[in-house]
């Protein structure tokens, strides 16, 4: 059983994640369009330094915590994402959608939170696209 205190913690962690996304302006169409036109490095620097920090801190965490369990003693859920054609095809399709909407999934929620109602259209589309994927999944190469 999941420890009860994890539930409010996930909400709080989300608030922190969303606040950083918003403050760093990576949810803005201005920043996203400038990134994909290679006109300013801001987005690349945010993403790049996030990746470097993640890699280094996870190496340290794994070295210090050989049991691979969290503070409640439950195993850390490292998601396995094996290579399959969807990594490339889905990745390219998502990239085009990211340009068109200027929002990857995290920012869609953050945008709605800022009162940017147009993001509801993006969310509706994303749910439609997810439904389409679920429906077509047996026919797609994996």
């Amino acid at each position: 059983m999941t420890k009860w205190w994890k539930y409010p913690l996930w909400l709080l962690l989300g608030v922190g994640f969303g606040a950083v996304l918003t403050s760093a302006q990576v949810i803005s169409v201005v920043r996203v369009r400038r990134m994909f036109a290679f006109q300013e490095p801001h987005m690349f620097l945010v993403i790049g330094s996030a990746v470097v920090t993640g890699v280094l801190s996870l190496l340290i965490l794994k070295a210090l915590r050989k049991t691979k369990t969290d503070l409640s003693g439950q195993p850390m859920d490292f998601k396995k994402r094996p290579f399959q054609p969807g990594i490339v095809i889905g990745g390219l399709i998502f990239g085009i959608g990211w340009y068109l909407t200027a929002a990857c999934p995290g920012p869609i929620y953050a945008l709605i939170g800022t009162g940017t109602w147009t993001a509801l259209m993006i969310l509706a589309g994303a749910l439609g696209g997810t439904w389409l994927y679920g429906w077509l999944k047996p026919k797609l190469p994996h």
Binding site: L58, P105, I122
Partner: peptide, 29 residues
């Protein structure tokens, strides 16, 4: 925006992750 959203939903599910799951968490792992 809706059409772009469809691509975001379809693409991230087919790729099994987005900028947080793949780029931040996946590469970190």
């Amino acid at each position: 925006l809706f059409a772009g959203g469809v691509l975001v939903g379809f693409g991230t599910r087919y790729a099994d992750g987005c900028t947080s799951g793949h780029t931040i968490a996946g590469i970190s792992n």
